[in-house]
Write a protein that binds this DNA or RNA. Structure first.
Length: 830
RNA sequence: GCGAGGGUGGCGGAAGUGGUAGACGCGCUGGACUUAGGAUCCAGUGGCUGCGGCCGUGAGGGUUCGAAUCCCUCCCCUCGCACCA
């Protein structure tokens, strides 16, 4: 018998699929479309197990949807701009472009070896000017609409990457990419007004409920950080205007006994009274500003501050409140000034204790009636009723928020306000290998957009990259100097490039017509394919790529490019691939290389193990013995296929047949076959539980193995066997397509599995000839009886009570009642 | 602290609406075939047992004829956010 040779089988079928362009999508509006997409890879060199996992999951879905008759789009491309290319260029003396394209070739070959059903006709790399030119166009159009602006601002600087980072790209004060500690720098940067969409980004999360993982929704909600409250003006004594604060607790205004300002508060100096401690206060504020932002922003950090000598007036109590500078007040959030309510805010409480400031209860918890002025040991931030609040006393705190805000509004000293934690997206990067920002600086005319007809602003390829972070663009005279589009005078180009997250914010839309050269999109193709029906990727992009892409979709919609609000109808976040319980890494030396796996076991085994070892969203601990188990199963499948092939008829899966003409074994086999279809369809359709789908097919294969010799040589039984075998191959095909195609053709089929339809099971074939009834006595398992499926309750009951073991347990005792669940069990209660 | 998700054999993991806990696979044990096997095949495999059973899904309580599943109290783990006023 011929040995199973994955290499041979896989090469053969990959060639067949490629030649026939089986997986090229066409805009066929008559058919329902299904767009399945995995987050595209950065071409780092070779693929790793994380790639194998995500693309395998996507491929199973794509192949399954093909079988369900959908017009499937399953494209692939390259997130090709980015820092590693520059670093590699410096290290190996090559050019980022050369390095990148070489990597793409290598990774593409590996993806092909894995047998993914990708539409390679739509492939593109984001570093191609044909791609990023449209991004430059979007930049200009967003700018025109006021959604892009330039400002000097304190930004996150990664000293290792030698570039700035957006807030989303800083994790615990460290660079998301390299882990270096982020520093603060003040630079002129380009920002995209994502905050303009904060409300919509938050609101539309509701539409993703149930189709996106809860935690991703939670993380985005958290990140956007909407807070409802009021802005309140506190007049400064001495006629120096007023200080505006934002608070979520206007109900506690009567408890505001002092004011805290951020050390960066811009009007600080003018608020200080003449003479006295001016210098000392400014020095203290300076010291706080210099504190390590990491430490300063930690909750455990010691609260400290300095009294400014100035006072403001509480607009409702009329009391004067000392103004402090406090290290825990952030300039970036709200107004940079906080009304301090020590009775009901723990930070203010600690501050008040330290500086001996008055602490007053204004919200009394339920059940503490009469205790309006207790000795407080900590702040109370819960619900309750107002006390010590003049005419508002007695109101519940929620109504008091409304009432007090309304009162302030009437006085002209406040109004409702909503604040977000989300900040605008800083997209400037001080790097070479990215899409140039299409802006020209003219000494006379200032910042000017590059005219659309001059796009793309191409990244010059003849440059030298430096290890010291000098910008090659600033050194390239050809790139740098240009004419001002307004006055024609000598002008300079912007030398910063765009954050690479900009490219990945719209690539999914470009696939709908990747070869469109006159515009970013073909509207018809785009409307047909979008949104992505199933998106798959890592959880690490919960507030990075996934937030940016949602924002870009809405922005492009408003620019008139698309008609959708959300880009990804369903999201699956796959778990990590671990080895020995830890993330794979070079330093730990626990890397499993997909290349090795392909060589030793082939694509089908690698895919099968990856899918079988754990459900997609959970982490997967790589297990070499598990891989061998998967390989063993495929060997068994192969041997079985070769043994059966000459006895099979190409009757198709779930073939119609007369149950009465079948032997007992054949009927059992047929029931198993149809039951398997029912089970795996559910697993594939609703929950992407590929591990249990595989387990079910394994059961069917085991059943075929054990029944095959008991079958009669008659035509009817042979059909049952053929049908069951077809179903097994179809069920496994999305996971292990090569071996299944081969065995399928050996089973006598001429049409390939790639074009085969998914079977429909026949509920009648599921009918049991006898059903096993479990018999319990007082809830404990005491026996089993077989009864006809249509047996009535009484009949089942009698059969159960007739069981010998059941009789023994019941003997001599009175039966209280008998619970009969037809088709399932009998419980005799004594 | 807030938010999300989890705790089931030696291991990965199964158990659509409460109804035989442990499917499928790994590992392990015994056997067969073999010069040999880490190949293949067969049988077994939650724990304890006086072989009648008893105990078992993080702990404790509850609802129910019946709970991994529902309710209450608590413990532990993982991830995310965290001085955001």
């Amino acid at each position: 018998m011929q040995e199973y040779s994955p290499e041979e089988v896989e090469r053969k079928w990959q060639a067949v699929w490629e030649e026939a362009k089986y997986f090229a999508a066409t805009e066929d509006t008559a058919r329902s479309k299904y767009y399945v997409l995995e987050m595209f890879p950065y071409p780092s060199g070779r693929i790793h197990m994380g790639h194998v996992r995500v693309y395998t999951i996507g491929d199973v879905i794509a192949r399954y949807k093909w079988m369900r008759g959908y017009n499937v789009l399953h494209p692939m491309g390259w997130d090709a701009f980015g820092l590693p290319a520059e670093n590699a260029a410096i290290e190996h003396g090559t050019h980022p472009a050369k390095w990148t394209y070489a990597n793409i070739e290598e990774m593409k070959a590996q993806l092909k070896q894995l047998g993914y059903s990708l539409d390679w006709d739509r492939e593109f790399a984001t570093c191609d000017p044909e791609y990023y030119r449209w991004e430059q166009l979007f930049f200009l159009q967003l700018w025109e609409r006021g959604l892009v602006y330039r400002k000097k601002a304190p930004v996150n600087w990664c000293p290792d990457c030698r570039t700035v980072l957006a807030n989303e790209q800083v994790e615990n004060g460290e660079c998301w990419r390299c882990g270096s500690e982020v520093e603060e720098k003040s630079l002129q940067q380009w920002f995209v007004k994502i905050t303009e969409y904060a409300e919509e980004l938050l609101r539309d999360l509701d539409t993703l409920q149930g189709v996106w993982p809860d935690r991703v929704i939670a993380m985005q909600r958290n990140w956007i950080g909407r807070s409802e409250g009021a802005e309140i003006d506190f007049p400064v004594l001495g006629g120096k205007g007023s200080i505006r604060v934002f608070t979520t607790r206007p109900d506690t205004l009567y408890g505001a006994t002092f004011m805290s300002l951020a050390p960066e508060y811009p009007r600080l100096e003018e608020l200080l009274p003449q003479g006295g401690d001016r210098e000392r206060v400014l020095r203290e504020a300076e010291r706080m500003r210099a504190e390590d932002p990491q430490l300063r922003e930690a909750e455990e950090a010691e609260k400290s501050g300095v009294f400014t000598g100035a006072y403001c007036r509480n607009p409702l109590t009329g009391e004067s409140m000392p103004i402090y500078v406090a290290n825990f007040v952030l300039m970036e959030y709200g107004t940079g000034a906080v009304m301090a309510v020590p009775g009901h805010d723990q930070r203010d409480f600690e501050f008040a204790q330290k500086y001996e400031l008055p602490i007053r209860r204004v919200v009394r918890p339920e059940g503490e009636e009469g205790q309006d002025n207790p000795e407080m040991e900590q702040a109370y931030s819960g619900p309750g009723f107002l006390v010590n609040s003049d005419k508002f006393s007695g109101l519940d705190h929620e109504s008091a928020k409304q009432a007090i805000t309304a009162e302030l509004e009437a006085m002209g000293l406040g109004q409702k306000s909503v604040q977000y934690r989300l900040r605008d997206w800083n997209i400037s990067r001080q790097r070479y290998w990215g899409a140039p920002i299409p802006v020209i600086y003219c000494e006379r005319c200032g910042e000017q957009p590059v005219p659309e007809k001059d796009l793309p602003v191409e990244l010059p390829l003849e440059v030298i990259t430096h290890s010291d972070g000098r910008s090659p663009l600033a050194e390239s005279e050809e790139f740098l100097y240009t004419e001002c589009p307004v006055c024609g005078g000598r002008a300079r180009r912007e030398t910063d490039t765009m954050d690479t997250f900009v490219e990945s914010s719209w690539y999914f839309a470009r696939y709908t017509k990747a070869k469109e050269h006159k515009a970013p999109f073909d509207r018809q193709a785009l409307d047909y394919w979008l949104p992505v029906d199933q998106y798959i990727g890592g959880i690490e992009h919960a507030v990075l790529h996934l937030l940016y892409a949602r924002f870009f979709t809405k922005a492009l919609r408003d620019l008139g490019y698309m008609g959708i609000d959300e880009p990804f109808a369903q999201l699956l976040t796959q778990g990590m691939v671990l080895k020995d319980g830890a993330k794979m890494s070079k330093s730990k030396g626990n890397i499993v290389d997909p290349g090795d796996m392909l060589q030793r076991f082939g694509a089908d085994t690698t895919r099968l193990f990856t899918l079988f070892a754990s459900p997609p969203e959970k982490d997967l601990d790589w297990n070499d013995q598990g891989v061998e188990g998967a390989h063993r199963f495929l060997h068994r499948l192969w041997r079985l296929g070769l043994e059966l092939q000459d006895h099979l008829r190409p009757v198709g899966p779930c073939a119609r047949m007369d149950g009465a003409g079948l032997s007992r074994s054949a009927r059992d086999l047929r029931r198993k076959e149809h039951g398997t279809v029912e089970k795996i369809t559910r697993d594939m359709e609703d929950r992407f539980q590929f591990n249990t789908a595989i387990a079910s097919v394994m059961e069917l294969v085991n059943e075929i193995s054990s029944q095959k010799d008991a079958l009669s040589p008659q035509e009817e039984d042979r059909h049952a066997l053929s049908s069951a075998w077809s179903t097994a191959l179809i069920g496994l095909y999305p996971m292990t397509p090569h071996i299944c195609e081969e065995l399928w053709s050996r089973a006598g089929y001429s049409r390939h599995l790639a074009r085969q339809e998914w079977p429909e099971y026949d509920p009648e074939a599921l009918q049991q000839e006898e059903v096993l009834i479990v018999v319990q006595v007082n809830g404990k398992l005491r026996g089993r009886v077989s009864v006809p499926p249509d047996a009535g309750e009484e009949e089942i009951k009698q059969a159960a009570l007739g069981q010998e073991n059941v009789r023994r347990h019941v003997e001599g005792r009175e039966i209280d009642k008998v619970v009969v669940v037809p088709g399932k069990l009998v419980n005799v209660v004594l």
